[in-house]
Computed example of a mutant assay.
Amino acid sequence: MAKKVVASLQKKEGKNFAKVIRAVRSEKTDAYTFREEIVTLDQVQDTLKKN
């Protein structure tokens, strides 16, 4: 599925988007999970700053 998302981001209309992957620690198990978000380029810094 990730390949499909990345391939769609390479189209002309998809160049204004970025895929942000963050590691989030679980409170129950102390294990890390990864959250993926697709945001516009001007929202990337705001997305990375939020907890």
Rank of each mutant, 00 (worst) to 15 (best):
A23D: 11
F34T: 06
V39T: 02
I38A: 01
Q10G: 04
E36V: 08
K4R: 12
T33Q: 03
V39H: 06
F17W: 07
V44F: 11
D30E: 15
G14L: 11
R35W: 00
L48C: 09
F34G: 04
L41Q: 14
K15M: 07
K11F: 09
A31F: 01
A2C: 04
K3R: 14
D42Y: 10
N16D: 14
L9M: 13
K19I: 06
V39R: 12
R35D: 08
K4G: 05
N51V: 12
E36P: 01
A2F: 12
A23Y: 03
D30R: 15
R22G: 00
L48D: 01
F17D: 02
T29F: 04
V24N: 10
D46Q: 07
E27S: 13
I38N: 01
R22D: 00
G14M: 08
L48K: 04
V20T: 01
Q10Y: 05
I21Y: 00
E37K: 03
L48N: 01
D42S: 11
R25S: 09
I38S: 00
S8N: 15
V44K: 12
N16H: 10
A31Q: 10
Y32E: 15
E27L: 08
N16A: 14
E36K: 03
M1E: 14
N16Y: 10
Q43V: 00
K3A: 11
A7H: 13
E36T: 06
E36L: 03
K50A: 10
F17N: 03
N16S: 14
E37M: 09
L9I: 05
D42N: 13
E36W: 00
A18Q: 11
T33D: 08
E27R: 14
I21R: 01
K50E: 09
V5I: 11
K12C: 05
I21D: 00
K28A: 15
V6E: 02
L41I: 12
R35C: 02
T33G: 07
L41F: 03
D46A: 12
L41M: 07
E27M: 07
K4S: 07
K15N: 12
T29G: 02
R22E: 04
A7F: 09
Q43N: 15
V20G: 00
F34W: 05
Q10H: 08
T40D: 03
K28T: 12
T47F: 05
E37T: 05
K49V: 09
K11M: 07
F17A: 03
K49L: 09
D42W: 10
T47E: 12
K28D: 06
F34H: 07
M1Q: 12
L9P: 07
A18R: 15
N51C: 14
K28C: 06
M1R: 13
L41Y: 05
T47W: 02
R35L: 01
E27V: 09
V6T: 04
F34M: 07
Q10V: 09
I21V: 09
D42E: 12
Q45Y: 06
A18H: 08
K12F: 04
S8H: 13
T29K: 07
E37V: 02
A31L: 04
T47A: 09
